[in-house]
Nucleic acid binder design. Structure first.
Lengths: 148, 148
DNA sequence: ATTACTGCAAAGCATTTGCAAATGC
DNA sequence: GCATTTGCAAATGCTTTGCAGTAAT
């Protein structure tokens, strides 16, 4: 499935989500949704707002924030914070769940995954009678390139 | 060792840290440091500022933020974010490293720890050639009391 | 037609910063 | 005495909100 097809499929699902809430499918939401799905990096809302403020079809800052919240609610993006005050996003659709290394020197994000980790988290949750819905793990340190 | 003694000891270490930087040991820093060390909950900088703005020995908001940054730098507190925009702190001194459950309904923080988790994180870091210095794991979901 | 969404600009809010006065060394 | 720190208040920067106009159903 090409990226274009994947995005279309995701958009259809997002449309369903919007409709199921009794909300409306709008051009602005589509522009933002597609932009975000095409990005494979970690980004901030403000950055999306900036990128979408220049083109032919402009979208306002407020709408970007509101749509990103919708996308988070529906699980198409994941938000997290790098210990800084700023919220970061990444799109989730079609990505395996993963954790992050963040390099404290160059700021790079590196993704990794490990099935055992997931098992242990599930096991710990059970032990504490906690009903897990999601988790975020970030490991801080130095990436290969930034070590002496 | 009583809490009072523990705090004194920690303060001495913090003094060493400050001096090693060529910075100065001040009354304001001591007030903030001791307040933070006496708290065993998760707090925000603003909350500390508020609490310390009323007493006999008042400390300004700006100083609280600056001192908390110093304490984070020296490892006496750990900062993290709950997915919201706000930064949360907890003091670390004399606490075992632990992870958190955060209840999405009542907002409660529950601490847990698991040695296997640490091993796996270390192992993953090695695999990726990443030099780990710290990590943060938060599991979101529902605590026992908030499940139906 | 009705109701929700958008764009804009203003408001919010936690955090940071500039500067004169105070304090540590 | 000199450099750093403090307190204050103003500034910052990301995010949210109110509102009047616009678009979706």
């Amino acid at each position: 499935m090409s990226e274009e097809e994947t995005i279309n499929k995701a958009w259809q699902e997002f449309v369903e989500f919007i409709k199921s809430k009794g909300d409306r499918v709008t051009r602005a939401r589509q522009i933002i949704f597609e932009h975000v799905m095409r990005r494979h990096d970690h980004f901030r809302a403000d950055d999306v707002a900036l990128k979408l403020s220049g083109g032919q079809e402009r979208v306002s800052r407020g709408t970007v924030y509101r749509t990103l919240a919708l996308m988070e609610e529906s699980g198409f993006v994941r938000a997290f914070s790098d210990g800084d005050t700023h919220r970061h996003y990444e799109h989730v659709y079609g990505h395996k769940h993963h954790e992050h290394f963040i390099c404290e020197k160059c700021g790079k994000f590196i993704e990794f995954e490990n099935p055992e980790l997931l098992e242990i988290i599930t096991r710990c949750s059970k032990t504490y009678g906690f009903e897990e819905s999601s988790h975020k793990l970030v490991v801080f340190g130095l990436c290969r390139d930034c070590q002496d």
